[in-house]
Design a protein around this nucleic acid. Structure first.
Ligand SMILES: [Mn+2]
Ligand SMILES: [Mn+2]
Ligand SMILES: [Zn+2]
Ligand SMILES: [Zn+2]
Lengths: 143, 143
DNA sequence: TGCTAAATGAAAAATATTATCATTTACATG
DNA sequence: CATGTAAATGATAATATTTTTCATTTAGCA
């Protein structure tokens, strides 16, 4: 289940961040999209209804949201600095290279592989990045 | 087996690219490092012995090498625009977050997962990105 | 050895990101 | 509800990164 605007607001406040109208607008922009969005794209989206919100505020808000893991950064589709709304549990992403739609998936466990790798390479493994890229059903049909 | 300087040169020429001294120097810089390197880092490395090679040439060379899949772009360790030498077969990466060392690994098959995802999501899956991040043995010992 | 398309480097332009600082404001407190 | 204060904002400038442009050079072929 993806995080709601409301849930994000609560977590922000729990961490001592103020719930400003600007932040609410940015959060709204992200949660209302299936897509993954760059800072510039969020700015444009937001700018239409709120022309006084600056790009800097977008950057600052994204940094906080990412730090708290309320949004996920994506790498495989286009820009390496684009974000999508997060979900509480550990998950990975499936991205449409055409329309940008992001689908979360879970249930695949990398810990076996992680153990094997750790043993073979002598690395202490701290995390991983797994994204699939492809075409969503709608984009397969379209020309 | 990682690609050698020689092998890369051959492939470049096979694709109609000229084997300029500048390109050879850039390739040398990448193949001689275990690390993953940003364009700026490659420039610095190269600049010491070849102060007349411009940063633009680095960018242009990296673009070609990446296009031909002779180098791999990495995302999980620091910059999203850093490269390491490639290997011919399909593989993934294990990256030390401290020293930047990149270890290739292979043998893990994502196609089962890919099929499951494809069926569940109705996506046509074209590719994936899998990187592990951690600490190499040397960096675990160091403070 | 010369020709030519491709490559290079210098410079500028375009983008992207971060820092600075005066002003505004969310929200805790009484 | 008014007030104080630390946090947040926006304007602007600074910095960093990447791409274009174009005159000059050169790798590789005939
Ligand atoms: Mn996600
Ligand atoms: Mn590799
Ligand atoms: Zn799509
Ligand atoms: Zn290390």
């Amino acid at each position: 289940m993806r995080l709601t605007k409301r849930k994000i607001a609560t977590i922000l406040r729990q961490h001592g961040y103020k719930l400003t109208p600007q932040r609410q607008v940015v959060i709204q922009a992200i949660t209302s999209s299936q897509d993954h969005l760059t800072p510039a794209a969020i700015y444009e989206k937001v700018h239409q209804d709120h022309p006084n919100i600056g790009l800097v505020t977008i950057y600052r808000t994204l940094e906080i949201l990412a730090e708290l893991e309320l949004i996920c950064k994506l790498h495989a589709g286009g820009s390496c600095r684009s974000y999508t709304i997060s979900t509480p549990q550990h998950h990975h992403h499936l991205i449409c290279s055409n329309c940008g739609t992001v689908v979360d998936f879970t249930g695949h466990n990398l810990s076996d592989l992680e153990q094997r790798l750790s043993k073979e390479s002598r690395f202490r493994i701290d995390g991983h990045l797994l994204e699939f890229i492809g075409l969503c059903q709608a984009c397969q049909k379209a020309p």
